[in-house]
Design a protein around this nucleic acid. Structure first.
Length: 231
DNA sequence: GCGACAG
DNA sequence: ATCTTGTCGC
């Protein structure tokens, strides 16, 4: 019965084994900006010492970047945060949100990395495979790899290299601010991911899909905790 | 063994 | 990721 979703591993050993298996299925085919009509940003939020995680996806028009749809869910995190295994913590909740979407986007932006991962299977790659939707990673810091100098001007970039391989790029999304890190997830190439992300940058460091998703899940978390009024 | 380490 | 006020700079 192909297509049935296998359960998520419950321990690091099994999770790593699954990553090594899944990475063989990744495809990096062109997906230029011209083919994007809807783009989504996905993110989660949580309180430091609480198991509740607030997940959300925002769908935006492209290139207009107007919000078309928003969906959220609250779930329990059943996997700890371990660098390199982020998807096993965040994806179950994000997939529930994904199923709720009325309009499936043409491409999804995940908060974190895709190919720029020690085993080339970051959350953007995993999510893209699970949904069979083009996906890319946009992280705020490096997980693995290094890059050289990049100019201060918006649009400048420098490739992220790891073990002699080009795995992603540091991209200046706004003049004079720290870069973000872009990598392909699945069904997209790094150049296309870079071009699409640059077209999502308005006046902030964080590209609009991710920025809106972040705002959404933070609002959800704050309001969720404020329902029960203290007596 | 030591240091690094997405969110 | 979250906790936090003001503050330096374009």
């Amino acid at each position: 019965m192909p297509g049935a979703s296998p359960p998520f591993p419950q321990n690091p050993k099994d999770a790593i084994a699954l990553q090594l298996q899944l990475r063989e299925q990744l495809q990096f085919t062109p997906f230029p900006p011209e083919r994007v009509r809807l783009i989504a940003g996905a993110d989660i939020s949580f309180n430091k010492f609480s198991p509740e995680i607030y997940a959300g996806i925002v769908v935006l028009s492209f290139p207009g970047l107007q919000i078309v749809e928003q969906a959220t869910t609250v779930a329990k995190a059943d996997f700890p945060y371990i660098p390199g295994l982020l998807s096993f913590r965040e994806m179950p909740a994000l997939l529930k949100v994904w199923e709720q979407l009325q309009f499936k986007p043409d491409v999804v932006v995940l908060d974190g990395h895709g190919y720029a991962h020690p085993r080339r299977m970051g959350i953007a790659a995993h999510f893209g495979l699970a949904t069979n939707c083009p996906a890319l990673g946009c992280g705020k810091s490096v997980l693995v790899g290094q890059h050289g100098y990049l100019a201060a001007e918006k649009g400048s970039f420098a490739y992220l290299l790891h073990n002699g391989e080009k795995i992603g790029a540091a991209l200046r999304t706004k003049t004079g601010v720290k870069p973000v890190y872009i990598s392909a997830g699945h069904l997209i190439t790094l150049p296309d991911a870079l071009n699409i992300m640059l077209l999502c940058c308005t006046r902030y460091r964080i590209p609009e899909p991710t920025r809106q998703a972040h705002l959404l899940v933070n609002r959800l978390r704050i309001e969720s905790g404020n329902h029960k009024q203290p007596k």
